[in-house]
Amino acid sequence: MTAYYLGLDMGSAFSKGVLMKTDRVVTSYACPTGGEIKVTAERIRDEVLLKAGAAKQDILKTVATGYGSKTVFFANVTVTDMSAHAKGVIHLCPSIRTVVDIGDLYSKVFRIDSQGNLQSFLLSGKCAGGSGRALTMIAKVLQLKIEEMGEIALRSTKKVEFSTGCAVFAESEAVSRIAEGVAKEDLLAGFYRALAAQLNALAERLGLEPDYAMVGGGARNAGLVKAMEDLYGFEIVVPPDPHMTAALGAALIAAETVRQEIKVRQ
């Protein structure tokens, strides 16, 4: 029998799934979470199974993570998305010790050890801002697609100070800045600097240890990654498909759990 392991990351905006066969990834899938997390979870499972040409009963273990993980009734284990990201990141880049995850509701900074175990973590506060939601707000104001936002900021030539990274006030500040005639690219670059500064405050509170990685949807934004690098003064690794590392980590945990169970039985 072929052993498949499924990792599901049910985020507040997007959900992702990774299917592994013994120790390698065979396929993955991502879609908006939508209102019914249970249905979305089943859909992702069915999609990856279809692509892999496998059946439900081939999955030895399913690990769910993320905001809606507890509603995935067919998951054998649930873990937090930080632990899942940690396993995924260490699998792809073994030298990483500090991870920044820009999620939709919260941003997280956490430290991990060489085995990908969670060492300590901090979440952005309710008022401090610095979450992916602010990115969405700005995109709306500038009428841009999230995907194109990052590149635009790299063209900035003029330094514009943006005073907040908070989702609530970023919108109104952006509106007034546009009214003042500030260029889109400069506005975006300024906004990324403000957001990066807030993430940096979080990271400094936690204490940084090299190497550094950025994951989550926000990591696909080149302008934001650059603002972070400028602020930190060192390179930040962005793994391929940074929005998928938690799902990957979940699949890895599924495989690891089974290996341990076998070891115990022997």
């Binding site: 905001y67 873990v79 937090t80 919260y106 175990n117 969670l118």
Partner: peptide, 25 residues
């Protein structure tokens, strides 16, 4: 209105995972 059980418990879960990894290392 400032409370979210889901957020709070997610944080607690991550904290427990941290404590467990410290215990083991």
């Amino acid at each position: 209105t400032s409370y979210s059980e889901m957020d709070t418990r997610n944080k607690i879960d991550a904290f427990i995972e941290t404590l467990e990894s410290v215990r083991q290392t």
